[in-house]
């Protein structure tokens, strides 16, 4: 229990750090793009929206930094992330709440698949080390060295352009209305195949390699040797003894590299114009839409922290003796 409490505290501190960075960045870096944007939009902004943008981006020079910080938190806690310039005049919070489910669905499912698949393959490769499977290592290394987005480009070029089998962009076919119907759902699944496979293929390799090396280390440990000497079946030793111990570092690694994986997945969304946070971020970059970009950053950070907490629970379930350092 103290383990979860410690982790929870750590996540709160991380969240605080992310929010504070978000607060400080526009105030530290030179240039006033938001001011420029507001000027450009002229009278089209209503006074409420204007006020929250002033607070979020520190345009009110008269206030002290501390007062600005307090106002900033107040605004955030009300769920007000300002107005998006790209999707003017939609509030950033609304844009995000529309795109978040897409990202959670795509990235969540594919990350879990990649982790499970990679771990299983890694267990096997580590168990059968020295066999022909080892020749796959350079191949997996090559795959993991390919940037996510480039693999996405190749996938589109092959499966959508050369052989038009699958759709290359969007989350569902144009003309459909989001609803709970078979037509809509099948279209969603169809659109998720290419980006999903892209994410799985490029992230699975690192799990295989990490798990294989852990297995190699663990199978040389005493308790595995003892289990072998006791004549337990190979499969039993492989999963009950070796893999169970080897997977624990993998789970901690999973939690810590999640931020990185999510970054890659956002890129895949950009390439496939998938209606999730990544694509929204991409559109924000072009328009220098800072309220939108910062909102995306906050939401993703929050999602990653929650996923980390879930990984911690998984860790606890596998290893009840756990007393890991924060």
């Amino acid at each position: 229990m103290t383990f979860l409490l410690r982790r929870g505290l750590f996540y709160l501190i991380t969240l605080w750090a992310a929010i504070t960075a978000n607060f400080l960045l526009p105030r530290l870096l030179p240039g006033d793009p938001v001011q420029a944007m507001i000027t450009k939009l002229g009278g089209r902004l209503n006074s409420d929206a204007m006020a929250s943008l002033y607070i979020l981006f520190g345009l009110d020079e008269k206030k002290s930094l501390w007062e600005q910080y307090v106002d900033y938190w107040g605004t955030l806690l009300r769920g007000d992330l300002g107005l998006s310039f790209t999707f003017f005049p939609t509030p950033v919070a609304d844009v995000l709440s529309q795109s978040l489910p897409w990202t959670l669905g795509l990235v969540g499912v594919t990350t879990v698949i990649a982790f499970l698949l990679g771990t299983l393959l890694g267990v096997y490769a580590g168990w059968k080390r020295g066999s022909w499977l080892d020749t796959l290592i350079p191949v997996t290394t090559f795959l993991s060295s390919i940037p996510y987005f480039w693999l996405g480009l190749i996938a589109i070029s092959v499966f959508s352009v050369t052989f038009p089998l699958l759709p290359a962009s969007g989350g569902y076919a144009a003309g459909l209305v989001p609803e709970f119907s078979w037509e809509f759902i099948s279209s969603v699944l169809e659109h998720a195949v290419l980006p999903g496979i892209t994410i799985v293929v490029s992230s699975v390799a690192s799990w295989i390699l990490g798990m294989r090396n852990m297995m190699v280390t663990v199978t040389a440990e005493d308790y595995v040797l003892v289990a072998r000497a006791k004549g337990l079946s190979q499969k039993r030793i492989m999963f009950a003894y070796a893999a169970r111990n080897a997977v624990l570092p993998s789970i901690s690694g999973f939690a810590l590299s999640l931020g990185f994986i999510v970054g890659g997945a956002l890129l895949v969304e950009m390439v496939f114009s998938y209606p999730g946070l990544g694509y929204v971020l991409f559109q924000g970059i072009g328009a220098k839409d800072y309220p939108l970009m910062q909102g995306v950053f906050l939401v993703i950070t929050l999602a990653v922290l929650v996923a980390n907490l879930l990984a911690d629970v998984g860790y606890l379930l596998l290893d009840p003796r756990t007393r890991r350092e924060g």
Binding site: T14, L25, F260, L266
Partner: peptide
């Protein structure tokens, strides 16, 4: 903290500012 925070969106923001 630096490990857990998703680096890509943060760097994108910094770079574009």
């Amino acid at each position: 903290v630096f490990l857990v925070i998703p680096a890509l969106p943060l760097i994108i923001i910094v770079a574009s500012m």
